[in-house]
Design a protein around this nucleic acid. Sequence first.
DNA 1: ATTGAAAGGAATTCGCG
DNA 2: CGCGAATTCCTTTCAAT
Lengths: 156, 156
Amino acid sequence: MNELDKTDRKILEILQKNARITNKELSSQLGLSPPPTLERVKKLESSGYITGYIAVLDPKKVDLGAVMMVSVTLHQHSEEAIEAFHRAIENLTEVMECYHLTGDDDFILKVVCKDIQQYERFVREKLARLNTLGKIKSSVVLSTVKMVREYPISER
Amino acid sequence: MNELDKTDRKILEILQKNARITNKELSSQLGLSPPPTLERVKKLESSGYITGYIAVLDPKKVDLGAVMMVSVTLHQHSEEAIEAFHRAIENLTEVMECYHLTGDDDFILKVVCKDIQQYERFVREKLARLNTLGKIKSSVVLSTVKMVREYPISER
DNA sequence: ATTGAAAGGAATTCGCG
DNA sequence: CGCGAATTCCTTTCAAT
């Protein structure tokens, strides 16, 4: 798939807001009939624009009230050390996001836990035990000012 | 809704992975018939466990290849200054996430742009113009090691 | 609180402009 | 590329348990 037209971009905007909209309703919002609408959606999926459809939960409701941002520095920076760190992070369910950064710190992690006690256990029993790990700096998230999952779709 | 049973938790797990699953398929994965499955899903929605269903896009495909993590300090910390900052952030489409933190920096932002040039414009024309703003420190995201949107559902 | 049947809609296919 | 009709499948309701 090469270039998105206006209709494709509108589909992405609508589905980013509501993934469970029916094809019929989607088509009516586009001013199209259902068959071409469905075909466009399928094409956006198969060409990798849409990677999935997910339910969004309220973390507090599922007992994940503590959010932390954690700056991590490795104690060495060989290819293998970084690879090993990546693989370790992959297996830690508490880590929702992890970015490799330029600057003083190597990585920043977003970690969710039930409470601060569980976070402490996570650090002591899991994070601090990674042998590539240098030092960490934890910051408590006092409030989530913004957390949008919708990418702005540019005109081209 | 008071407490989730095992079936409810499994529903949340499945829908976090695939929001467009049919009710029929969902019910068969649960070992239930469709009607009670549907009722449980509706209840999870109305009681706030599920806040929405969204399509997940590939940011690179929609021309958002540059990701930055930005530490922000305000130059004053009155109630109004913080409120004003919140409201301003709300209107910046480039800011996907913003957390109010403990520690040296007040906030951390995740910002997505087409490229570094667009990021520079964002900083100069939008972020730096907020009059509550003290100083910022930008870090380029070299790679996204992990970005999961699925919360781990605890046993209780 | 779950089941099975039944009615009403929606998804999907296909032939055609 | 999009449309409209037709078929198949799913959703949703309801009586029964």
